[in-house]
Computed example of a mutant assay.
Amino acid sequence: MAVIPVHLAGRSYDVHVGAALLDQAATLAKGLMRKVVVPVVADRNAHQHHGARLEASLNAAGHQAAWYFVESGEGSKSWDELQKLTGWLLAQGVERGDHVFALGGGVVGDLTGFACAILKRGCGFVQLPTTLLAQVDSSVGGKTAINTDAGKNLIGAFHQPSLVLADTDTLKTLPAREMRAGYAEVIKYGILGDFDFFEWCEANGGNVVSHDADKVEEAVARSVAAKARIVAEDERETTGVRALLNLGHTFGHALEAETGYSNALLHGEGVALGMVLAARYSARRGLLSGQDAERACNAIAASGLPSEIASLKLTCDGAKLVDHMRHDKKMDAGTLPFILLRSIGAAFLDHEVSLDDVAAFMDEQLKAN
C-alpha cells in the first residue's frame, strides 16, 4: 500500500492506494466518525459490488451505514439531485463536524463533495473512489461540482476531502471500457509534465487496463503523487499551474457537450480525444514536433482509447464545437486559455489562442476523418 500526502495549509490529508482498503475503512477513518451511524452516498453499481465490504468494516467497529443511492451517469450531477441529497443529509442530522462517505466514481464524489461544501457552510467527507478515473483524478484535489444546461461543472466549490481510500480491488469489477477511460487520466500526467512516466505508460499501459495488480497500484500511486504536487502548489487554480491538469479537457468537454454528455462518449474518452487534438493543434502551431504529436496519439490509441474524431460520427462543424468551448469555466475577459504542448512532458498555458483558428483546425480534423 502507498500513502501519498496532499500538503495544504492547515488542511493536509492522506491518499491511501492499495488492495483491500474498503475492508480497513473503519480503521483508517477511525478519527473521522463521531457517531454510530455513518452517512454513505453510493453509486448503485458501486454498492452492489462493494457495499457489503464497507458495511462489514463499519459494523466490526461498532458503526452502521445509512445509505443514499445515486444513479450512475452525469445526469446525477444536477440541481435536482443536489437538493435531494442535501435534504437527506439534513434529515440524517449531519453536523459540521461529521463526515459523509462517498462510495463510487467521479459523479458520486463530485456530487457528495459539493453537497458537503454547502451543507451548514461545510462539513467533512471521505472519498472512496471505485473507478480508475476517480482514483487518479477527481477524488483528489477538492474540486466539486454539478452540471447545468450551460455546461459541465459550472456550479461548484473547492472543498477538500479529509481522507481518500483508493482500493484498487474495486477496479476488478470495472467494464473494460471504463478501465480504458480511466487510463486516459493516467497517461495525461505523463504527457503534461513527466516524460519518464509517459515512457512507463507506453511500456505498461496495456498491463494497467488489463488489471495487472502491481502495475495498477503503481499507475494510481504515481498519478496521485503527481496531482498532489500540483494541487499543493496551486490549490485554487490561481497561478496557472493547476490549470495544466486540464490538458485535453477544453477540446474534450466540447465533444462531450456535442454528444449530450451521454454514453456515446465517456469523460475519459473525451479527455483522450482532447489530448490528441491538443497535441495536433500544438504541432499545427509549430510548438510541438509532428513526430512527438503522433507519438502521444499512438500511445493513447495503443490502450484502446479513441484517437480519431471519426469514431463519434459528428455532424457538426468546428464553429459549433468552439461554441461549446465558450461556456468553459476558464473563459476570462472573453478569452479562453488552452493547455498546449512544447514537448511530451512539457505542457503550458497559452493565452493567445484564436478561437477562429481553433474552429478552422476542428474543421480540418472533421474533414480528415
Results as ranks from 00 to 15, higher is better:
Trp67Ala: 04
Trp67Ser: 05
Trp67His: 07
Trp67Cys: 06
Trp67Arg: 06
Tyr68Asp: 04
Phe69Val: 00
Val70Phe: 07
Glu71Arg: 11
Glu71Ala: 11
Ser72Glu: 15
Ser72Ala: 15
Ser72His: 14
Ser72Asn: 11
Gly73Trp: 07
Glu74Tyr: 09
Glu74Ala: 03
Gly75Ala: 07
Lys77Cys: 12
Lys77Thr: 11
Lys77Gly: 10
Lys77Asn: 04
Ser78Gln: 05
Trp79Arg: 15
Trp79Cys: 10
Asp80Cys: 13
Asp80Tyr: 14
Glu81Phe: 14
Leu82Gln: 10
Leu82Trp: 12
Gln83Ala: 15
Gln83Ile: 15
Lys84Cys: 08
Lys84Glu: 09
Thr86Lys: 07
Thr86Gly: 00
Thr86Cys: 07
Gly87Ser: 11
Gly87Glu: 02
Trp88Gly: 00
Trp88Asn: 01
Leu89Gln: 01
Leu89Thr: 02
Leu90Trp: 11
Leu90Tyr: 13
Leu90Glu: 14
Leu90Ala: 15
Ala91Asn: 14
Ala91Leu: 05
Ala91Arg: 15
Gln92Asp: 09
Gln92Phe: 02
Gly93Ile: 11
Val94Ala: 08
Val94Asn: 05
Val94Asp: 02
Glu95Phe: 02
Arg96Gly: 00
Arg96Glu: 08
Gly97Ser: 08
Gly97Pro: 00
Gly97Arg: 15
Gly97Trp: 08
Asp98Glu: 03
Asp98Phe: 06
His99Gly: 05
His99Arg: 11
Ala102Thr: 09
Ala102Phe: 01
Leu103Pro: 06
Leu103Trp: 01
Gly104Val: 05
Gly104Leu: 03
Gly104Met: 08
Gly104Ile: 09
Gly105Trp: 05
Gly106Ile: 01
Val107Asn: 03
Val107Ala: 06
Val108His: 03
Val108Gly: 04
Gly109Asn: 03
Gly109Ser: 04
Asp110Glu: 09
Asp110Phe: 02
Leu111Phe: 07
Leu111Thr: 05
Leu111Ala: 00
Thr112Cys: 04
Gly113Ser: 07
Phe114Gly: 10
Phe114Trp: 07
Ala115Gln: 03
Cys116Ile: 01
Cys116Pro: 00
Ala117Thr: 05
Ala117Ile: 02
Ala117Cys: 02
Ala117Pro: 02
Ile118Asn: 09
Arg121His: 05
Arg121Asn: 07
